[in-house]
């Protein structure tokens, strides 16, 4: 089973990202589960969301405490939340930032400037979908086609096309390192 934790701020779409990843994994014949950290949602407040992916139906209902992968939608969160908490050995953290942040020892962090890419491709700082592109570029959790088709189904028309372009760019950029 793979467990993914998303860190964002209220309104950035961390919950949506977790759901989209779950749907994309299910498309590939895997079982999945996505849920928010059950809090009172306020715009701008730190939020978390979780996805689990497995080969069997997921019965486990506890929150994710030991993620394989962590996605940080907003680098300023790293000043207020320990985003590395509970990370499994061999885990990877994908952060939306232009500049590598100061890091504790022994963590594997990959960065991508998803805000810049979102502004260029979508025209708005919607970083959740491009960060999914970066996540799967690093981890191969699902393939790019499943993710893009999931996004296009969820956001039909031009919005979906723009998001798909942003996803493809972050996917390629982070792969090239």
């Amino acid at each position: 089973m793979k467990e993914i934790r998303f860190h964002g701020r209220g309104g950035q779409g961390a919950v949506t990202a977790a759901e989209v990843l779950a749907v994309a994994a299910f498309k590939e014949g895997k079982y999945s589960q996505a849920f928010p950290f059950f809090g009172v949602e306020r715009r701008g407040a730190p939020v978390m969301a979780f996805t689990r992916i497995d080969d069997e139906f997921i019965r486990l209902r506890e929150q994710v405490y030991k993620p394989n992968y962590i996605v940080v939608l907003d680098p300023t969160l790293m000043e207020v939340v320990n985003v590395f908490e509970g990370m499994r050995e061999g885990g990877v953290v994908v952060v939306n930032t232009a500049q590598m942040p100061d890091l504790p020892e022994g963590v594997d962090v990959r960065i991508v400037d998803a805000t810049k890419i979102a502004l260029e491709e979508i025209g708005k700082p919607f970083v959740n979908t491009p960060m999914l592109g970066a996540l799967i570029g690093v981890t191969g959790l699902v393939n790019i086609d499943s993710l893009v088709s999931t996004i296009k189904e969820r956001y039909p028309g031009e919005v979906g096309e723009k998001n798909a372009r942003a996803i493809k760019r972050t996917y390629e950029e982070i792969k090239e390192g």
Binding site: A18, E19, A22, V23, F26, Y31, S32, Q33, A34, F35, P36, F38, F57, I58, R61
Partner: peptide
């Protein structure tokens, strides 16, 4: 509440 109502699953 939340554990089922707000969870996405097949």
């Amino acid at each position: 509440g939340f554990i089922l109502s707000h969870t996405y699953e097949p």
